[in-house]
Each structure stands twice: as C-alpha cells, then as structure tokens.
Design a protein around this nucleic acid. Structure first.
Length: 132
DNA sequence: CTTCTAACA
DNA sequence: TGTTAGCA
C-alpha cells in the first residue's frame, strides 16, 4: 500500500510516515513510480512506533526494537536479548514518569473538589482565616 | 488526484 | 510537525 492508505489506516500523517523512514523506523520498498510501497505489517509497526515515540523512547531504540517484535505475540525474537537492558531502563523511566503524573493529577483533583461552585462562602472563609 | 523532495513569513 | 512549491 502507498503512503496515503497507511496514513488513513494508522492515523499518522504522511509527513510523520516519511519522517519515520528517515529515522530508520520503517523501510518501505519503492514502486517503479518512486512512490513508497508499505507492507501490510507496517500498519502494526506504525502503531508501535507512535506509542513508543509518544512514551518518549528514542527513535534509535525503537528502530532496533521493531524487528525484534516482528511475528511474536509476546517475547522478543531470538537474538534480541541485548535489548533487555535498555528496555528495562525505559520501563523504569516510564514508571517514574507515571508516578509524577499521578501526583500532579491528585493535586489538581483535590483543588478542583475543594473549590465551591461560587464565591458565596467567601466571607465565611475570610472570617475563619482572619489573623489580626 | 496522489506522491515526491526540499525548504521555511 | 505543518505547510507549501514545483514535478512526475
């Protein structure tokens, strides 16, 4: 399939798809016309790329990882065990990021819940906090 | 009409 | 990344 169809089917822009190729994340064949010719399996590959890129993984790591995921429901393909260490690092980085986001969300949620619909209780609040 | 490369009021 | 120009 050509770039337009892959873009439609993945939600990625054509611009992004060409960028992925430039980053060696995808290596579409070329039609005699010069148009990129993507394999059906690239649909899933693009989904993985978008997810991992959004999670902050460096493209070079994703580039190495993709071929390790090909044709595997779960684990990495044989010969990809060297990816384990960097992947564990990314996993831990995401765990920390999630913790920080959760803390921020909890703070915002509390502020929102404690805020009255209007300022009708403003005077009471002032009285309760009057210092001098 | 679709895709391509290159480039940036 | 968007977007556009100028081709094929």
């Amino acid at each position: 399939m050509r770039i337009g169809e892959l873009a439609r089917r993945t939600g990625a822009t054509e611009r992004a798809l060409r960028y992925y190729e430039e980053q060696n994340l995808l290596k579409p064949a070329r039609l005699p016309s010069g148009y990129r010719d993507y394999a059906p399996s690239d649909i899933e590959a693009v989904r993985h790329v978008r997810s991992l890129l959004a999670a902050g993984l460096p493209s070079h790591l994703i580039a190495e990882l993709l071929p390790c995921m090909v044709d595997t429901g779960d684990g990495l393909m044989p010969g990809c065990r060297s990816m384990l260490e960097p992947l564990e690092s990314e996993r831990d980085r995401l765990t920390s990021a999630i913790d920080e986001l959760t803390t921020a969300r909890t703070l915002l949620a509390a502020l929102i819940d404690r805020t009255p619909e209007d300022d009708s209780e403003y005077d009471a609040w002032m009285a309760a906090h009057a210092s001098a």
